[in-house]
Amino acid sequence: MANILISPSKYVQGAGEMKKLGDYAQAYGKKALVLITESGYKRIGATVDGSFQNTETEPVYEYFNKECSKTEINRLVEIMNERGCDVVIGIGGGKILDTAKAVAYYKEVPVLICPTIASTDAPCSALSVIYTDAGVFEEYLFLRANPNMVLMDTEIIAKSPVRLTIAGMGDALATYFEARACQASGAATCAGGKVTSAAIALAKLCFDTLMEEGVKAKLALEAGACTPAVEKIVEANTLLSGIGFESGGLAGAHAIHNGFTVLEECHHMNHGEKVAFGTITQLVLENIPAEELEDIIDWCIELGLPVTLKELGITEVTDEKIMAVATAACAENDTLHNLPFEVTPETVCAAIKAADAYGKYFLGE
């Protein structure tokens, strides 16, 4: 099995970069389908529209219908055909971005991804998650290539709810530990090969950045400030974690996150919040040194990421619930088996209980 690394062709990040979107789009097409929500257009539509003035690319705006579903993708493909669009631009959150990537995939045209939040590492990936019209997960659509461009306007992102950027840090926290596990086990990554040294280096830089800049960025965002720490965290959440998870691989943290989706009381939690607790659980399974575990739990507490089952929304903890989570996490086709040792529902159940106990201990409960 070869070592493989994949990444977006171009990554642009900085305050006010959305004002240059039209200039960037000129390199990819003459008529752009711009997918955005109605509320998103009210917030930043004037900025986006202004960016296309005095350019050779014409924007065709279309409001997103809430779900990344086959119905919505087909609707947008038809609009592309009717209007003669030759490039897709997605502006907003995860489902819009996944839809834009899918439409571009089927039309075989370039796609520009413009997240307005930094809550996950998905924008850079060659993957779209497809749901039914009712919002139920249907399938993964694996794309031929990563986005042609990812544009992060940190001025816009800094105005989004702080909790979303913190959740992005929770998602990014898993990156290095999962990549390290895949390297140790020789597991295949989402890129279709083994981990490269470059992916491991980026994953480690992601972790180091989170530890050094995370709390500073949280405080700055709460003060409404876009500082160098915020810039570094946006890059860690999006680019470093994006390449790190896709070319470094997934292991315990994301599988345990998937396990928690079987409990309805966790559904209100953000993806990255559940991944953070999944990361702590993976580290318990790996039995890392106590000082290292304490540092990571303390970091999560400072940021407000969940370190106990209660903080995940599970107020009545039972053996049956935790075993259900552990069993789902150990599904044959999930990534928990990328760890370099055998895992069972019983060992995962024990690790979840221990992670919860450690969280309570460090919270002083």
Score class of each variant (00 low, 15 high):
E212F: 00
F207N: 11
M211T: 05
A236R: 05
I166H: 06
S197K: 06
Q183D: 11
G242T: 07
A174H: 13
A181I: 06
L221Q: 10
I166K: 08
G242V: 07
T238N: 08
Y176A: 11
A223V: 00
V234S: 05
E231C: 04
E235A: 08
F207T: 01
L202D: 02
D171M: 09
L202W: 12
S241I: 12
L210C: 12
S197W: 02
L173I: 10
N237A: 12
G193A: 13
T209W: 01
S197T: 04
Y176W: 15
A203G: 11
T209L: 03
E178K: 00
V215R: 13
L221F: 10
G186T: 00
M169W: 12
A229G: 09
D171Q: 06
S197R: 03
A172H: 10
A236H: 03
T238E: 01
S241C: 15
A217F: 04
G192V: 05
A198K: 04
A236I: 08
L221A: 10
L173D: 14
M211V: 14
C206P: 05
S241N: 09
A225E: 15
S197M: 02
K194D: 01
E235W: 03
C182D: 04
G214C: 11
D171R: 13
G242Q: 08
E178F: 01
E235I: 02
A223L: 06
T175F: 02
K216C: 10
G242P: 11
V234E: 01
V230C: 12
